[in-house]
Simulated assay, not measured.
Amino acid sequence: MSKAKTKKSKEVQIKDPLLHHVKKEWKLYTFLIIPILYYIIFKYVPVIGNIIAFRRYKGGPNILGEDWVGLRYFKQFLTDSNFWRAFWNTLRLSIGYLLVRFPATLIFALLINEVKNKMWKKTVQTVSYLPHFISLVVVCGMVKELLSSTGPINALLVKLGVEKIAFMSEPGWFDIVYIGSGIWQALGWGTILYLTAMTNINTELYEAAAIDGAGKFKQAIHVTIPGILPTIMTLLIMDIGNIITASNMQKILLLYNPLTQSRADIIDTLVYRMGIAGGNFSYASAVGLFSAVIGLVLVTTSNYLSKKFTETSLW
């Protein structure tokens, strides 16, 4: 009888190993309660509010709107020139930033990985990480001061015999200011995952490549990059999915002005201006829902292509 009982208990454990593990490590699983509640309250419950994209909402006790209007607000913003200006500005800024930041971060991580002096390596990493911890308000204030007409950069240009440049008021300079300041702030922090992945590469592969006559450049191309390819593709998929929905609205609000609005106005600032500032919540919700759907399509497509060509995917 005892043997039969033990067999039955083993079968139950095998059939439901997750439940058995939860019972065994329940104290550790209690740490998940707060994160789960956070996502439920602040991520999933607000999804219900998307219903006002299809209803007329003017504020008041009825938080889900007064009347059903269907696709009225979607048709409204799709024929709005301000929306399409913001849409193309979002694509231009996000893709431009991605095309510069993504390879720059990877190259910087490869360079740091080649530094053998531990003291120097830690110093470079610390200095490159510091801008990430500076408040965005402070960063934008520094950018404005450095690039102002009386700032040090224009003072240097005058000494070199070059006319002053209105960096903060000429629309053509906004992309460079936005992307350049973003690279300075995020470059070092973005190397953390790459450097962590590089520590898992078998050192014998480098030794074999060196015996075959491969220099540092070829070792990076044929050993390091293939070794961290899953990490590269995972980050790239997430970045592509966030092209529409993850523009830095706070930074743009702090940097742009009426003179640069034609180049700086993005979907998020349009939603903020129409929804929070203008009180047109239904219109803003429709725009936000539309951009979220595009983000879902982008991340799904990039995940499919990555899985097909590199056998690496998020799911």
Rank of each mutant, 00 (worst) to 15 (best):
V287A: 04
I14T: 13
V124D: 02
L255Y: 08
S169I: 10
W88A: 05
T234V: 12
Q76M: 07
V12R: 15
P131N: 11
L18I: 15
V158Y: 08
K15V: 10
L19V: 12
G161R: 01
A166R: 09
S313L: 05
I107L: 13
K15T: 09
L235G: 12
K159Q: 15
D239M: 07
P258Q: 07
I237M: 01
W120Q: 12
L255M: 12
S313A: 13
I244F: 11
I228S: 00
K8S: 10
I36R: 00
G59R: 07
G275I: 03
K43T: 13
Q125G: 06
P17V: 13
T90F: 05
H222W: 06
A209H: 04
G96D: 09
T300L: 15
P230C: 06
I276F: 09
Y129N: 03
L193F: 11
L193K: 04
S135Y: 04
Y39V: 14
A166H: 12
W68Y: 14
N113K: 04
Q185F: 09
Y256R: 07
Q219K: 13
K3R: 11
E311K: 13
L91S: 06
S285K: 10
V287R: 03
D80Y: 04
P230Y: 01
I165W: 05
I294T: 04
P152V: 12
Y38E: 01
W88G: 07
A209V: 03
V47R: 10
S128F: 11
R55Q: 11
I112Y: 09
I40M: 07
P171A: 01
K216E: 13
K27F: 10
F167W: 14
V139H: 02
I240C: 02
A186M: 12
Y44T: 09
K5I: 15
D268M: 06
F54Y: 15
Y73T: 06
W315R: 07
K27C: 01
K8D: 12
K8P: 00
V162K: 06
G241H: 06
G49D: 00
V271R: 03
T312Q: 08
R55I: 11
E145H: 05
I33H: 05
F309R: 03
F74M: 05
E170Q: 15
F31K: 02
I14F: 08
A186R: 01
L305K: 02
K218I: 00
V297P: 00
V287I: 13
G213T: 11
L106N: 04
S94W: 05
S181A: 10
P103H: 03
R273E: 07
N117H: 10
L37N: 05
I52M: 06
L130Y: 14
L37V: 12
T191N: 06
L314P: 10
R56L: 12
I252N: 02
D265Y: 14
K216G: 14
I244M: 14
S128Q: 00
Y57N: 08
N50T: 15
A186D: 09
Y129T: 04
K15Y: 11
N117D: 15
E311Y: 14
A104V: 06
